[in-house]
């Protein structure tokens, strides 16, 4: 690390579990899961257009159990009978998750099990990176784990979130200060970038490969992550510093949000990227680019001497949700005020 390089720090997600999710979970526990504590796919979303000064949130709502895509069984049904699909709100991206709802407090508190589940998800993400699946669908880079214990009788819910981020053996560093997007691109390039990005967000899961056009100074080329090799075929030769853009849930002036971590890991492992410009797209006050920032980062080399990542060596990962003291502890919420019949009766005017 030279003098002008600093460790890049990522802002973690905070979980924001809507009360409607707990109601839905209580219902599912009674009607569907019963005593099963098998994994259940759920869907959350995060916004890259949060009111300024709000933390980056991973949100769960009543529709978390709706599937994010139809499987073959559903497709054979009449249109009317197919399940509703999970839809992220506008200016948000979907994050797929796995729910483990435990039957007992003791199971829930069994941290060696929690550790195992977190490692399993880390392996899944790592495998998706190596296989290229995450390049086809970058939403695979941002997956989460939710462990719950629903004490339905007392309307108490206990939960822990884990959003695994693969870590490099040495930290990622920034080169120089971050800059506003407006000074990274000239006026014409900015226009070109703007018009391209909007239409592509949903089909790219908010991750873009970006290249300033070589033929003229006024256009920017945009592509999906799986088009990387088309954009930067010779990145190892260090000819030019590649650019990626991602939809950033974070609003801090010089720190990116959590989803960038696994993306950078992918670029280092799959494409041997060592230096990179990252556009953190932040949609604030109706503008997608005015508040966006650009970071120049230095990625450590994460491959063996043979130049290939070893699929058997699972990288370290971090990402358990912490409390304000930085401790990894379960959270709890009491919904007696909206579930307990006695309390409800008291509140009615």
């Amino acid at each position: 690390m030279s003098n002008n390089e600093e460790i890049l720090q990522f802002k973690e997600f905070s979980s924001f579990v809507n009360i409607s999710f707990w109601h839905e979970l209580a219902q599912m526990k009674l009607d569907v899961f019963k005593l099963s504590d098998k994994e259940v796919p759920i869907n959350a979303y995060y916004s890259y257009s949060q009111a300024a000064q709000l933390d980056p949130y991973l949100c769960l709502e009543y529709n978390a159990f709706q599937p994010s895509s139809l499987d073959i069984k559903d497709l054979s049904l009449d249109k009317e009978q197919r399940p509703l699909l999970f839809k992220a709100p506008p200016k948000s991206l979907i994050s797929n998750g796995i729910l483990y709802n435990f039957n007992t407090k003791e199971d829930f508190k069994n941290t060696s099990k929690a550790k195992k589940l977190f490692e399993d998800l880390t392996k899944t993400i790592y495998a998706d990176i190596l296989s290229g699946a995450a390049e086809e669908d970058p939403s695979k880079l941002c997956q989460f784990l939710l462990m719950t214990f629903a004490d339905i009788k007392n309307h108490n819910f206990y939960y822990m979130f884990g959003i695994p981020a693969l870590s490099f053996s040495t930290p990622i560093t920034t080169v120089g200060a971050c800059q506003p997007l407006g000074s990274f691109f000239n006026e014409n390039q900015l226009q070109s970038f703007k018009s391209g990005v909007q239409s592509l967000i949903s089909s790219t899961s908010g991750v873009f490969v970006v290249k300033k056009s070589t033929s003229d100074q006024s256009t920017v080329e945009l592509g999906k992550l799986n088009e990387w090799n088309k954009f930067y075929p010779n990145v190892a030769d260090d000819a030019e510093v590649p650019i990626v853009a991602f939809c950033d849930p974070c609003n801090l002036p010089s720190n990116p949000g959590w989803p960038l971590r696994n993306l950078l890991y992918l670029l280092a492992v799959r494409h041997k990227v060592s230096k990179l410009n990252v556009i953190c797209l932040r949609d604030q006050k109706g503008s997608l680019v005015d508040n966006s920032i650009v970071l120049t980062v230095h990625l450590p080399t994460e491959t063996s001497t043979a130049g290939v990542a070893d699929p058997n060596i699972i990288p370290k990962s971090v990402g358990w949700e912490k409390d304000a003291n930085g401790k990894i502890l379960p959270k709890s919420v009491s919904l007696a005020s909206t579930m307990d019949p006695l309390k409800l009766a008291e509140q009615s005017v």
């Binding site: 460790i7 890049l8 720090q9 990522f10 802002k11 973690e12 508190k109 941290t111 060696s112 929690a114 550790k115 870590s167 490099f168 930290p171 990622i172 801090l252 720190n255 971590r261 971090v318 990402g319 358990w320 912490k322 401790k327 990894i328 502890l329 379960p330």
Partner: peptide
């Protein structure tokens, strides 16, 4: 609950 199984000390986390 506190358990040494889940400890994170990561310089890259804000």
């Amino acid at each position: 609950f506190q358990d040494d199984n889940l400890v994170e000390d990561d310089p890259s986390t804000l």
